[in-house]
Design a protein around this nucleic acid. Structure first.
Lengths: 190, 190
DNA sequence: TCGCTCATGTAATGGGTTACATGATTCA
DNA sequence: TGAATCATGTAACCCATTACATGAGCGA
């Protein structure tokens, strides 16, 4: 639920929709992402519900900033959600796995192309979580030193990103080796 | 895209909506799941598009079965999708990570409760992929021995499930230890 | 008798993406 | 000169979930 991510950031400090996107990009995008359009509509709904209020900060040369502030009711809702235990497993949707599962007819070479491309992407992503994300977090702390205790928790979600990518890379390597060894060669015309 | 999962199974043999749910539950639910209602509406759309046809098989005492068969056009669409490379990373959405990220205010004990509950769920799931899923696959092969080559690929997606759960369990253990050691104790009233 | 399996579907709602619409400033 | 950043929003559409509606047969 995007709304709780937005309320979470607004519990740190007041922010605009555009700024919220920036915070998400460098921190939660690992396990929750959203487009700007959805962020704007969700903020609007939150304001109607009374969970946030907004103030216009006039600007010249570009649209006025709309700064959102969390209300007492919004904080209460956030904490209540936080304390509600999750009773089921997160569900995954991964198109690559669908392509692998049904990939026999597509042929060995097509499959290897897919898998190698993904291997490259996941290696980059792993590097990103290992390096860039860590730096980004440091920069935020320089601007907002009061959030240092939160950063312990932020970092554990970053670790999740690293571990997830490492697992994915391992699986891809194993699967590539299996496909090379086991699947029948393509021998038919295009 | 659910439609390609359905077309994938129908490329093996004709099936009803209800049966498709069963196949998904024991195989693709690891990386793609769907409710019956969505399966039925998607099959209807696929028939309108001409990717499948359906035949009614009369029954007594319960609704007639509607058996779907893939068409040449449907097969062509499936193969074309299969051969299209994926150029981006799968996106994850995981509410637990949101709760961890913003979990400071919820308190140490609430967080440990969450994490321990998830640890239990993921351990069960890992066992499931390691044992039950493997057996289910064997049973399918007994009924459909012609699918034995496909089963190599099925099994690699099952391996993904096992590896994913192992990674998740490792992260949860690490995170629980970190929370116990690092987070300040709750000392406020409820 | 209670719950599970078999078997179909529709309607309402929610969550999310894509496309549309606008436009100044800044840096390479 | 062209791309990125800053900055807002709406409308149309698509995908997916939940709720509704029905009901026989079978095994514990």
């Amino acid at each position: 639920m995007l709304k709780y991510v937005l309320l979470g950031f607004l519990s740190y400090l007041p922010l605009t929709g555009y700024e919220l996107e920036g915070w998400m990009n460098i921190s939660t995008s690992n396990f929750w992402q959203a487009k700007l359009s959805q962020i704007y509509t969700t903020l609007k709904k939150l304001e109607e519900e009374g969970a946030v209020t907004s103030q216009i900060a006039p600007q010249e040369g570009r649209p006025d900033r709309r700064v959102y502030t969390i209300t007492e009711a919004g904080l209460a809702e956030l904490y209540e959600w936080q304390r509600t235990p999750i009773l089921d497993l997160p569900q995954k949707k991964d198109a690559l796995l669908v392509k692998v599962f049904f990939g026999l007819e597509a042929g060995k070479e097509a499959m290897l192309t897919q898998l190698r491309l993904q291997l490259d992407l996941h290696r980059r992503q792993q590097q990103h979580y290992a390096q860039q994300s860590f730096n980004d977090m440091q920069h935020i702390l320089e601007d907002h030193p009061e959030l240092v205790t939160n950063a312990i928790l932020w970092d554990s979600t970053r670790r999740f990103g690293v571990m997830y990518e490492e697992m994915y890379i391992g699986w891809l390597q194993e699967t590539i080796a299996m496909v090379e060894k086991t699947l029948p060669d393509d021998e038919k015309a295009k």
